[in-house]
Amino acid sequence: MGNTETIFSALLTLGLVAVAVALSLYEGLDLERDIGVAVVRSFAQLAAMGYAIDYVFGLESLAAVALLLTGMVLFAGWTSARRAQGVPRAFAVAAGAIGVAAVATLGLLLLLRVVPPTARYLIPLGGMVIGNAMNTASLTLTRIRDDLAQGRPAVEAALALGATSRQAVAPVLKTALQRAMIPLIDSTKTAGIVFLPGAMVGMIIAGADPLEAARLQIVVLYMLLGSVSVSAILAGLLSYRFFFTKRHQLRAARPAAGQRGDPPAG
């Protein structure tokens, strides 16, 4: 098959990376190191994933597909939790939200027989679902964390008026969900006009019928809308309660090293 040659031929495009590095050096952007790390990591990760998918294809086992997708969910949860530092139990919340989003959307596609239950469909679609759900979970969690820190007076004012934690956090939750979902809604609106989405580009290049590529791309976009909504809502609903006590008290912000804890005594 020449799989190995195929992957290494991608290395030829390093010439394009060299342009980026040269620009960074010439303009003093100080990005060479980051570009280098990104190039090495993406090559290693994508090549490894290519071999892994190739291996799973050979197994023809749905259990192996499920195992691979589970690993992707856990890694996505870990990545999201690292982004959302300061959010209590961020890993469990993010992995849970991403996992449910993946199961719900892929499950629905299988149930409605939109896609066949084969590794060839489930792994790439699962990767897209999980990746987008991960970004949404990160956005939701960091937004809630920052808004609860900045909007503390408003939340406490609501609690002082007899609001429950859920009622007091409602405006924060609403903004966080909006901000997390708007990017995908916008790119869905412009799909096909401003840009051709990745899956469609890939299929057309690989020689598929453009109409079949469009059909699958539509499925992909709707699937992503679904998974992103599930991920955002779950990340929001699961995480907010850890910022409050059972007695409807907004927990003190975790004091950073060398700083005094909240609330300010006075």
């Binding site: 609690l159 006590t245 007695r247 609330p263 006075g266």
Partner: peptide
């Protein structure tokens, strides 16, 4: 004086803090 805990005392009275 500032830092005496006055606001904290108020918040403890209506149990905004435990």
């Amino acid at each position: 004086p500032s830092g005496a805990g006055k606001s904290t005392l108020l918040r403890a009275i209506n149990r905004l803090i435990e």
